[in-house]
Design a protein around this nucleic acid. Structure first.
Lengths: 255, 255
DNA sequence: CGTACTTTTGACTTAGTTCAACTCTAGTGG
DNA sequence: CCACTAGAGTTGAACTAAGTCAAAAGTACG
C-alpha cells in the first residue's frame, strides 16, 4: 500500500525505497479520531507535535471577532498540518475536521529524522513551498476574480489535488463539504455561492451535491477560472494546461 | 550597526552575538540595485539564490491572464524573499521593486550554514511561519472584511511591521506605494480604495499621502480593522492588543 | 510651462449581500 | 411505515457595497 502522503510527495519527484518505508512507518504513531465538525487544534493552542491527516478532510480556518469565518486552507488526506509548527508558541488559527477523520501525531524527532534524508527533505520543503504558493493563489483568487470564476478556480484546484492523491474517478471525487463551507472558502455569501454554483452547473462545467463533486467539462471550468496549475509545482505538469496535465496524472484508485 | 534583518529576527527572541555577526556579514555579498517598478524576479524564472532586501521596498505579485494584478505580499527592508526557493524549478509569481531598492543575493550554502546555528535556524523558520500566517490573514481580510475595515487592517499590519524594524517615528512611516498599489493589495478598485481612504482620514484614523503613512489614532484604526496581532508572532506582543504592543516595541531609528 | 502620473470627484451600473420564506432530504422515533 | 425534525439547498425581492467610466484637479519633473 502506498500512503496518500507518499503519493503526494512523489508528485514532486520519485523517492528512494528507504524513504518510502519511512513514510509508511508514520501511520503507526499515535492515532486520533475526530468527528466531522470537531476542532483538531484551536487558535491559541501550543501544538508541540506535527499532525498528519491519514484519512478524511480537515481545514484551517480563522474566525473574526464578529463571528464571520474564513476557511484558509484544506488539508486533504496525506497532507501535513505543518512542517515547522513545533517552534510555535501559539496557533494563530484553528484546524477543524470537515469529515470524520483520523490524524496521526508525529513527534518532532521523527520530523527531524525525515529532514535528514535529502530526497525526503526536499519533498517536504516542497510541500511547504506549495502550501505557501497555494495561499498566494487564494489571495489572488479572492482579490481579483468575480464569484463564478472564483468558484471555478476553487474547483479546479481541488480537482487537481485530489487527482494527485488518486481520489478522482471519472471526473468525480468525494468532497464532504457543504455550500456554507464553500462560501467560507471563497469569501462569498451563502446565497450568492448557491446561485453561482447553479450557473456553473447550467453551463455544464461542475456539479456539486451530497459532498461529491463531478467535473463535467474540465476545459470549460479551466477557462472560466483562468486556471494555471503552475503554483502546485507538480513535476509532470509544469507549464502545461490543466486538461493536458490531468491526462498525465495517475488515475490509480487508492488500494 | 544592527541590520534590519537582525532587528526583525530578534523580534522573535534574542540571538547570540556570533549569530548577529553572521547576519551582518550578509550585506557583503553581491549586491544588486533595482529601480522602482523593476522586476527583481519574474514568474517562470528559476531563482537559484535566496534574495534579501537590504534597503527599499519590494512586493510579490501575481498577474491574471486578463492583466489584473494582485499584490500578495510586501517585502520590507530586511525580509528574505524566501528561505527555500532554491529547491524550486520555476517561480509561480513575480517580485517587483516598489521603491528603488538594493538586494543581496545569498548563495544557498550560506543559507544552509545559517540553518546550522540553532537560534538562527529557529528565527529563520519563524520567519517562514510568519510569512505563511500573514498570507492566511490576508485571505481572511480579503474574504471577510468590507473595504474600509480591510484597508484599516492593511495599515495596522504595515504599521506594526515597520515598527518592529524601527521605521516608525511619531506614528509616521515611509511607505512608497501609490493608491493603485494599495488597491491591488486589498482587492478593491482604485476608485473605491480612494473613497474608502478618505473615510478613514475623515474619521481621524490614518492619513496616506506622498508615499508616507501617518497613523493618527491607532486604537481607532485597530478597532475598525478588528486587528489581532497574534499572527505576526512577535515575542513581546503575544496576546496583547496592538496599541499596548506598540508601546513595548522598539522606537529606535535606523542607525 | 508642458507632460505625465496620481489623486479626487460625480454619475451610473452591477455584483454581491441580506432577509425571509420555501423545498428537499436524510435521519429519528413512534 | 409514516410523521416530525433538523440541516442543507433553493428561490425571490429589496438593498447596498463596490465597480466602471469619465473628467477634473493636483503634483512632480524636465
Amino acid at each position: 500500500m502506498t500512503s496518500a502522503l507518499a503519493r503526494r510527495l512523489e508528485a514532486f519527484g520519485a523517492l528512494p525505497e528507504a524513504d518510502l518505508a519511512v513514510l509508511n512507518e508514520l501511520s503507526t504513531h499515535r492515532r486520533r479520531k475526530f468527528e466531522a465538525g470537531e476542532d483538531v487544534v484551536k487558535e491559541g493552542d501550543n501544538p508541540g507535535e506535527v499532525q498528519l491527516v491519514i484519512e478524511g478532510f480537515a481545514c484551517r480556518y480563522k474566525m473574526l471577532k464578529d463571528g464571520r469565518q474564513q476557511i484558509v486552507a484544506y488539508l486533504l488526506p496525506g497532507e501535513f498540518c505543518d512542517l515547522h509548527v513545533f517552534i510555535l508558541e501559539a496557533m494563530d488559527h484553528s484546524i477543524s475536521a470537515i469529515s470524520d477523520c483520523s490524524i496521526v501525531n508525529i513527534p518532532r524527532e521523527t520530523v527531524l529524522e525525515m529532514l535528514e534524508r535529502p530526497a525526503l527533505a526536499r519533498a517536504l520543503l516542497m510541500t511547504t513551498l506549495v502550501d505557501e504558493a497555494t495561499l498566494r493563489e487564494w489571495i489572488t483568487n479572492l482579490g481579483q476574480r468575480p464569484a463564478r470564476n472564483r468558484l471555478a478556480h476553487f474547483f479546479c484546484e481541488m480537482y487537481l489535488r485530489m487527482k494527485v492523491i488518486g481520489r478522482v474517478v471519472d471526473g468525480t471525487f468525494d468532497f464532504p463539504v457543504n455550500q456554507a463551507q464553500v462560501a467560507a472558502s471563497v469569501g462569498l455569501s451563502l446565497v450568492h455561492t448557491n446561485k453561482s454554483l447553479r450557473v456553473l452547473k447550467d453551463k455544464g462545467a461542475v456539479r456539486f451535491r451530497n459532498g461529491r463533486i463531478t467535473i463535467s467539462d474540465i476545459a470549460l471550468l479551466e477557462k472560466i477560472a483562468g486556471f494555471k496549475s503552475n503554483y502546485l509545482h507538480l513535476q509532470n505538469t509544469a507549464g502545461k494546461s490543466l486538461s493536458s496535465a490531468l491526462e498525465k496524472a495517475p488515475t490509480l484508485v487508492e488500494g
